[in-house]
């Protein structure tokens, strides 16, 4: 992916550049708001990563202006301001996701991947498939191979999110935000338990597991 990272903290900028480059993305970094906006307008990027507090034009203003001038590249806010209010401001300004600093590298990668796929032309999907696992979004049924799997509503949403992000790492925080709509972290392992229950339903009686735990990061659904 072609990524523009606008971040004034040089240390943070090179950290972001490094972890994204290692995954094969090409990353340009800019250190202030105005040149960031200029570059975002002059070149086509697949994704913008924007710090909220930038010299010469703050991140919110930058994204707002970028959107007003017709820019539609997906945008991820990076910010030390992590309140729900700040998040809402970021999304209202035209951001697609919001990640609070400090973050784990995997968290950033997972979100970048999720946003990257969102950019494509998206016909409404009714069937999701990962390996021999198949989810019908209209009938709300799941089957693996020929065997149909009975899921609770929340498990269905959890699996849907994992399937939509198949092949990518999905973090616990992402699951809490997207599946449960909570913007706080429980201290205990509540998410892990839900995942293991889901795993019990979709993987238990099959030879090849689909739902993998990525140590220290989260989970990945992969055929």
């Amino acid at each position: 992916m072609n990524i523009l990272a606008i971040e004034d903290d040089l240390e943070m900028a090179s950290f972001v550049q490094r972890i994204l480059s290692e995954e094969g993305h090409s990353v340009e970094t800019v250190h202030d708001g105005e040149s960031g906006l200029a570059l975002a307008r002059s070149k086509e990027f697949d994704l913008l990563i924007v710090d909220r507090m930038l010299p010469r034009k703050d991140g919110l203003e930058l994204v707002r202006e970028f959107r007003e001038s017709g820019g539609n590249a997906p945008t991820l806010f990076l910010s030390a301001l992590g309140d729900v209010d700040h998040r809402v401001e970021g999304l209202k300004a035209g951001g697609d996701d919001y990640l609070t600093k400090p973050f784990a590298p995997d968290e950033l990668l997972a979100r970048v991947d999720a946003l990257g796929r969102r950019g494509g032309t998206e016909a409404p999907i009714t069937i999701l498939k990962v390996g021999d696992l198949e989810m019908n979004l209209l009938a709300r049924t799941v089957k693996r191979g020929e065997e149909s799997i009975d899921l609770q509503p929340r498990e269905f949403r959890l699996l849907e999110f994992l399937m939509r992000n198949a092949g990518q790492v999905v973090t616990r925080t992402m699951l809490l935000e997207k599946v449960w709509d909570y913007h706080f972290d429980p201290q205990t392992n509540v998410i892990d338990v839900h995942i293991s229950r889901l795993r019990g339903k979709i993987d238990k009686d099959f030879d090849r597991p689909l739902l993998h735990t990525v140590r220290g990061a989260g989970y990945r659904l992969q055929a």
Binding site: W180, V190, D192, V193, H194
Partner: peptide, 24 residues
């Protein structure tokens, strides 16, 4: 900035979130 919050629904959701972990 307060809004009306349905704490019954919130309770149901949290119960659902915590139940498996508690049982484990």
């Amino acid at each position: 900035k307060f809004k009306q919050v349905d704490i019954s629904m919130l309770g149901e959701e949290l119960a659902e979130l915590y139940q498996p972990a508690a049982e484990d």
